[in-house]
Design a protein around this nucleic acid. Structure first.
Lengths: 222, 222, 222, 222
DNA sequence: GATGAATGAGAATTCATTCAT
DNA sequence: CATGAATGAATTCTCATTCAT
């Protein structure tokens, strides 16, 4: 995942203080993204960027130097959450031999990565069709598709479910309620996720209406 | 200097139909609440009130005459959705002989009433503790409690679920995604609700973590 | 003091119910002017007219039926206060044999008539040059001039003072402080007026700078 | 997730002249206060803040960056006028050997500092009980108390007067008449102040009614 | 005539974004 | 690079005035 944004000055050698600012700058960038995610979760995606900068411990102009506007920052946050969530999907495969256990582990891990925070951003606020994002999202879908298909193949879950169903339900159920620490993620959210997983595991009791979805679909109607 | 305020009754007979002019006013009031709900669903709870007024087809000041500020309008919207949702719960009991079918009918009906639109409002934006709201919320909880208990007693659903679990999961799953017509309520939402219901109906497969919740609990952490 | 505003329908005879609404209407008009004066004193000349109407116990539209706009109402209030103050000046002459005592009585009486409330209105807010107002103001000046000259002639006060000095100082000293009941007119204002009067009575100790003024002068600079 | 907010000190030496950029900012702040005082005097305390900003030559948001709201700006204006007025009281002591001349000098100087502009603000519009203001007001009262007591002790003025009487009368007499350049301060105001001073200097001719006041008292009734 | 409701224009305040140091 | 300050373009809300009953 090359983030070579601005690699122009990479050339080696001396120049003692040339790379130092880089270290700083990179740390700032990360701090800002972290702060932004936290505050989107706590206060919603409308949170003033000046406040994000304050929480990140940098001046507002530094934020704008790194991210041209709110859209750019949102983009990075989405990218970062998506990427880490994908990592969790991959870890889950490795960590659990039982395929449904793997899916289950992923679901809870995704909640901890605040995948729910992406929801409000799905609706505008950044360029859904940016290649970088599309790529990352496909990576996530592939990974989750793997988890789901393995569980189905093993007969461990009902088979009328698509990746999109999992991802959307998962996102919605973990979607933060600004002002309430992420819907009190420990007291409620994991509980509801477990209920959801139990439902996936049980045999189908009805014909699900509507159509299975990919994340992609979500934007279609727009 | 007699300040005989209230001498208006000097004009004898008049005032027969003192409440008539309100026909218009009442319609306006309702139109505003309706427009507000629609726009909260479409654009989120931060939608400019001037836009709400425009959609309602009234001047902005008319909105403010009816609702002192955003909080007051939000209050009314929440009240109205809660109330209609409760009605749906009561209807569901009457309409279905099977207790789980009743719960199921309620869940889908609540989605159509946009119960999910309440989520973003639960986090501030209005006075949670207003007696009027508390009363209405209790009515809703009682009604849903009835649905749930009957289904459990009939052995039609797992028994480790509380009203709050149903209401929170239901609200989250149907929570609107601004910019996407209520998460494309027909293509996805009812599907996910059905999946959720299937999960409720199936026997428990795991011990649910965390604690069951009432809507009340949601505010506790705050 | 003919206030034949709208006397067009004065014609006598029958018409039982023709003059009745008149009585009402007139009372309303007076109530509004009274309420306006009270509220100008209490809250300043920016007080919302709807509030004035409420205090007067009439609908806002009734206020506007009687006074085309804020200027018209202000006009009437000024006229009314000026007129009553003039009456007080005339009464003072009649009531006191000592010329300075008469002036003194007038000064305190003018305070009770809220002559200070005129100050904020002197600065725009209504048409200073309206003939009706000019006439009334001249009447006031004449009356006060009488008081002052008599006191001077009797050797009861310093002679380098003009009517305008008395009226302006009097108005300023009694000018209401919105939010503080007319500068607590009894505890402070009459005290300061007495001090002012004592100063007038004493022999001149210095050459007063500037020029004596008529109320008229006040508008000149504008 | 280290939230080492405050790592700004990573950049070693920097920050030498951290307060330099404030040169501009400070000037702006002062310009705004100056403009505000001028416009309060000219147009009253309700003058639109956007206009104040324009007069100060800054954008409206700059005003709001410096003063959270009208109250905060008013606070600063009051503070600034009070403080300068106190300075004048102290200067007056130094400049005049005769105690009454000192008082007299102060009174005219206070008018030039627009002490009268404080009047409309005394009635709400800012927090009267803010410690900063209370302190500054006490400083003013102390200073004027000194002037008054010295004049009394020297037998140069009547002795039934309190600081509050002087300050209130002084403020009222110099209170600006929006629309009229500070009551044409040179043509009328100094004249009336001189008359007032003459009255103070003369022996008491009557028992003053009411009670002497401190500025503090003015708020009591509220 | 009288009333409550409706309205648009304007004022206060916030915030994304740009600028100067 | 980093920063605090500046800015204008919304947004919320108020109020004088008009309208419909």
């Amino acid at each position: 995942m090359k983030t070579d944004t601005g690699t122009k000055t990479d050339n080696c050698f001396v120049r003692r203080r040339a790379s130092r600012p880089r270290a700083d700058a990179l740390r700032n960038r990360e701090r800002i993204v972290t702060a932004a995610l936290e505050m989107f979760v706590e206060f919603g995606p409308e949170v003033p960027l000046d406040e994000v900068a304050r929480r990140a411990g940098v001046g507002n102009a530094t934020l704008y130097r790194n991210f041209a506007d709110r859209e750019a920052l949102t983009h990075e946050v989405v990218l970062s959450v998506t990427s880490r969530t994908t990592d969790r999907a991959e870890e889950a495969v490795a960590a659990e031999s039982d395929p449904f256990a793997a899916l289950s582990r992923f679901v809870h891990a995704a909640a901890d990565e605040r995948i729910g925070a992406l929801c409000p951003m799905l609706s505008g606020g950044f360029d859904q069709h940016h290649p970088e994002l599309l790529a990352e999202r496909r990576r996530l879908e592939k990974a989750v598709e793997g988890l789901v298909e393995r569980a189905m193949t093993a007969g461990r879950m009902r088979t009328d479910i698509a990746v999109g169903d999992v991802l959307v339900a998962l996102s919605q159920l973990t979607r933060p309620l600004p002002g309430i620490a992420c819907l009190d993620i420990d007291r409620f959210t994991h509980r509801h996720l477990q209920l959801f997983l139990d439902g996936l595991e049980a045999p189908a009791r009805s014909v699900l209406p509507g159509s299975a979805a990919t994340l992609e679909d979500l934007r279609r109607g727009h």
